[in-house]
Design a protein around this nucleic acid. Structure first.
Lengths: 138, 138
DNA sequence: ACTCAAAGTTAGCAGCGGCTAACTTGCGGG
DNA sequence: CCCGCAAGTTAGCCGCTGCTAACTTTGAGT
């Protein structure tokens, strides 16, 4: 019951940020062909300096590639993480809307929730979207 | 579309930990009548030192009361937060199980998810538990 | 009544993710 | 061509949340 259920706390917080960033970078590239720091500054409402630091960590971790004063691109690993996150995000958002949450709230909540959804829960959400609720045996 | 959806990142991470702690403290008090640091050490699988620091912050923020070498209790504010978090946690967990997620996975995921569930989404989950899925108008 | 182990505290370190301030670079318009 | 502004970087700060190591306090068992 205790202990191992946690252990997310520290390292997971870091990977949440990584997921948010690669998603935003992929989005910028899809939208205007490339991603500059300013896109991320606008998206996350943080300063250049913060973006610079964070992107530096992402590069260290092999998720993005960039050189000084150059646009930011995703590595293969980064692209994989981004598309995975995007898919999860979409499913969670669609699911929330399906259970009656407004578009706006679904958008906000899905961003927080997506990072904590296991494969199994994601599958359950997909199933509800496709087939409705499973029979209630409570 | 951008910006304001975030701004959780920093300060919210702190309050997630606060919620987890008051919930665990309330749980320990409910179970063995009082809460000692060791209960939290076991629950979160961190060291004494970490618990000591964190509890110090919670005290500073008016959520708990404790004196050196004394058990930890909740203030009125802490109790309010704890029962609120517990309720939310229960609803989320019950909801996940209702959509077909296993007990084990529901337990784990609900801990991560509960902190990101808005009033509206919580209400939607309750409604599904009570009345099933709303009509699909997609 | 003492002792000693367990519980708790304190000090000091590290990494993350924010920030501001000061600097450098690069580019577009005059 | 060059000059200035916007974009990006770097340095240095702070707080949080972890840690280890060394200390103090408490209390239980002989």
């Amino acid at each position: 019951m205790t202990s191992r259920t946690y252990r997310r706390t520290r390292s997971d917080h870091a990977s949440e940020i990584a997921e948010d960033y690669v998603e935003a970078i992929a989005d910028a590239i899809a939208t205007h062909g490339l991603c500059r720091s300013m896109d991320l500054v606008a998206h996350f409402d943080v300063t250049h300096a913060t973006v610079s630091n964070t992107v530096g960590r992402l590069q260290r971790d092999g998720l993005v590639e960039t050189a000084p004063y150059q646009p930011i691109s995703l590595t293969a690993k980064g692209k994989r993480l981004a598309s995975q996150s995007q898919k999860r995000h979409e499913v969670v958002k669609a699911f929330l809307k399906r259970i009656g949450v407004s578009d706006r709230a679904a958008e906000i909540d899905s961003e927080g929730i997506e990072h904590h959804v296991s494969r199994q829960t994601l599958a359950a959400m997909r199933k509800v979207l496709a087939d409705g609720l499973p029979p209630d045996r409570s």
